[in-house]
Design a protein around this nucleic acid. Sequence first.
RNA 1: GCGGACGUGGCGAAACCGGUAGACGCAGGAGACUUAAAAUCUCCCUCCCUAGGAGUGCGGGUUCGAGUCCCGCCGUCCGCACCA
Length: 868
Amino acid sequence: MASRFNALKADAAWQKVWDERKTFAADDSSTKPRSYVLEMFPYPSGRIHMGHVRNYTMGDVLARFRRMKGMEVLHPMGWDAFGMPAENAAMEKGVHPGTWTRANIATMKAQLKRLGFALDWTRELATCEPDYYGHEQALFLDLFAAGLVYRKESAVNWDPVDMTVLANEQVIDGRGWRSGALVERRKLSQWFLKITDFADELVDGLGALEHWPDKVKLMQENWIGRSQGLQFKFALTAPLPLAGGVGGGPDTTAATAIGEASPTLTPPAGGRGIDSVDVFTTRPDTMFGSSFVAVAADHPIARAIAETNPDAAAFIELCKRGGTTAAELDTQEKLGFDTGIRATHPLDTTWQLPVYIANFVLMDYGTGAVFGVPAHDQRDLDFARKYDLPVKRVVSEGDDEAPVFVGDTAWTGAGALVNSHFLDGMDIEDAKRTVIERAEGEGWGKGTTVFRLRDWGVSRQRYWGTPIPIIHCDACGAVPVPKDQLPIVLPEDVSFDIPGNPLDRHPTWKNVPCPSCGGAARRETDTLDTFVDSSWYFIRFASQPDAKPFDRTGAEKWLPVNQYIGGVEHAILHLLYARFWTRALKHIGMLDIAEPFAGLFTQGMVTHETYKSADGRWLGPDDVRDGIEIATGDAITVGRIEKMSKSKKNVVDPEPIVDQYGADAVRWFVLSDSPPERDLPWSESGIEGAWRFVQRLWRLIESDGAAKAEGDDIALRKLCHRTTVGIESDINALQFNKAVARLYSLCSAIEKAAPSADREEAVRTLLLLVSPMVPHVAEEAWATAGNDGLIADAAWPIVDPAMLVDDEVTIAVQVNGKLRDTLVFPKGAPKDAVEAAALASEKIVRLLEGKAPRKVIVVPDRLVNIVA
RNA sequence: GCGGACGUGGCGAAACCGGUAGACGCAGGAGACUUAAAAUCUCCCUCCCUAGGAGUGCGGGUUCGAGUCCCGCCGUCCGCACCA
């Protein structure tokens, strides 16, 4: 027998066997209990990285484990294959995005295969192929027919580098999430999905997601940003004439409260001018504390005034120049411009409030106008102090009920209403309710819910995406492409030598007859945001008929995904969109699943030390040995352990590591040590340790079974059963680091044990237990030991509960809570016997010096604490 | 600013419901085997003034007993950000 496990040879051999036998293909018609294990599918950027290896290894262990436990497991893989990098490559290298993407897929697929993942490759899909995106177009049309898709001209986030529109979610600190370029505001006609129709459900549904991290649920909740309050009108004392460009009804670019066409301004009966201003507040209880009204710089009132007032126009310009980054907002002073207009307080028509234009009011939240209550809002207080506006207390701060509020910290806490007429003495919640009821009764306001979430703009001015199946006709408007004409396939003959979208200048693809009237018309040349592609791929994995996106019954057999695993960077975007899409499909009756992902796990990143040369260049791990730069011989500085990134050069490419150590060592390493939700520091010595363990397993198997051993080893047998239960719970909780520790312990115990029948059985158990993690060496050993079939198909060891019971326990003996001695007792020994033995212990007798203990606490089978 | 998570040896980390802190691994040290090296095996490995004492970021508290619970600080990381 060979003394070393030849990973290179064994890996390839077993991968071939799994492939040929389609071992991991999921059977749709199986009657076994089902489990759908899914990792977020990769973007085919070129090569897999360690983050992929870690992500897919975790899912793989779970999938293999569940198969061994007798479940029918769906564990598929595909490619999130549309997107910008392919077009960038096209521009840089003159290669077609499709050619580049498909080559990357081939490379990465081969790399994944070399890691031995138990994937059902028969269901592989790539979102860039017409047999995927054609079905997506059909779904888009279904949503369109259901009224969940609409087109509107709107101010959008325009990324000048990527030359495309970004969703709000894709703008970070005013910059494009991918390009990092400063985002501009542009007006474009865009397609939107009505995610806001589901805003309430998307928040409420989070409550039922027991197996999601609280952190992610909280992030989604904050993102959706539901606020309940009162929307109401302040009447203006004199109508404001509408100047030039602002005339007519509600402004379509202004954000409105969700679910209502709430006008931000109301023309008076005569149809001329603005006579009121709508505001939204979450604190209607504080209405008697208000001292001003403030509108956003781009509010219709502000614009109307700017038409005739140059000072106002100048102030609006000043507001627009203000920065939007965190630091700028923090330091920016609250500025206002008194318009001279006065608003009438709805609860006291003799009370008039000044209307300001203010730089801290946002047009795209609520109604773009607020009323200020300085005593109970810090921002309002800063503003009031600056412009010398009244500061009136309406919620008592402890025992302070004085009407005039002094100090510079607003009181936002609980308290009883004061100085508020009919609200006096109520608590905040009662007062809110009372004011809303009154507003609704008197018709000047309405209880409303406002969301931070906006509708999802899905139009992208790019080539490499799903074509939006719409044709624009001058006579008929936007006409859906008839379903029998799907898929609308991207034209191959495109070039990327000029910036912009090649579809827009394609002569034959773009110009088509109108499906409705037959006249000359143009295809929509925008493509869908790639987040649409990833919003339903998990459904297509579960069911992939040719003629439709999925079969409802087929999909419902597998869905929801039992365990979804991926990076926390998708906590909002992808996961929110997929939750929305699932609800939208339910809404139109295509799928009856409440939530797409029953369980979610967000894994940590793979990190590595960083190195810098003497002259400050970043160095890669291969450039460095024993603290010196190999090329120059100079000493290097070791920097922080950080996420692997090309810019810091601290990337370790998995492929050469697999070449050198084999798939099992890599898999074992990424499962070891660090808890999976935390970052994993990659290290050369760590992978060597993992490789040593694989070899150690192999030696153990080789040394076993030469001659049939006889006899019992009850302790070892018990350890096997205990380890088995432990690992089951570790894997179910995705705590692979703990499972690894247990396996090391079992391995050591077997190595130390004398030959016996139990030891032989223990080796067999160990093999089964490690097989989800290191499947190649496990298969090789399984076959070498003469077992029939694959270990991948073998059953998980059965635990005998009787074997989990210990008959002896070690009892700690403490004096005043400090450990002084230990005693071994049969399990369940009577309290007084244990107490007597503890008090009789030599060490305890010496410590007590003859004094009687004041108290003795006995915890059965655990400890004795003597209080001296 | 708001919200959240986390702080345990040289390092990654364990510790069920408040009950023997540091399992397991990495690095390091000593020894065995070997002509030698590698591999492998055995032992040591929190700190200190070592019959003992101290110790889970710091300071208090509850308890027979606190890494774990409570209060107050300090620090690190993550998310959101003028959200009315």
